[in-house]
């Protein structure tokens, strides 16, 4: 049972992720942009952040970079529609621990989480 923060600007996607994650995990926050993601991360210290890339104000890669600088032990999985190799490399550089492309199937989300925060 991990504490998870969801960062995605789409309410539809946040709902979808919550439905999938709630079964086995605790959602400690839902935010809409990279700035809020960093703030809530610092307050809640979740075990895992599910991070979208394309978000207003601050994107998910920048937010991941800051979260990892604040706390190198943080776990961040990118959860994005972007399937570009260059972006994946940027995400690795920022310190992301996993990468899920939308649209996703429930098992692949569970598996990615299991890899990053084993229960």
């Amino acid at each position: 049972m991990a504490e998870v923060l969801i960062a995605d600007d789409s309410e539809f996607m946040r709902n979808l992720l919550r439905e999938i994650l709630e079964e086995n995990h605790t959602i400690v926050g839902e935010v809409e942009n990279g700035v809020e993601a960093v703030e809530v991360f610092k307050e809640e210290k979740p075990d895992l952040v599910m991070m979208d890339i394309v978000m207003p104000i601050r994107d998910g890669i920048e937010a991941t970079d800051e979260i990892k600088n604040t706390d190198p032990s943080a776990n961040v999985i990118m959860c994005t529609s972007v399937g570009q190799e260059e972006k994946m490399k940027e995400a690795v550089k920022a310190g992301a621990d996993g990468y899920i492309t939308k649209p996703f199937q429930k098992p692949s989300v569970m598996e990615a989480i299991q890899d990053v925060v084993p229960s």
């Binding site: 600007d9 394309v54 994005t80 529609s81 399937g83 570009q84």
Partner: peptide
């Protein structure tokens, strides 16, 4: 729309080995 947009432009970015960013 967001996901379809990515689906549409990602191939282009990968062939060119560059990134193509888009706004929300």
């Amino acid at each position: 729309g967001n996901i379809m947009t990515s689906g549409f432009v990602d191939g282009w970015a990968n062939v060119l080995q560059q990134s193509v960013d888009h706004t929300p």
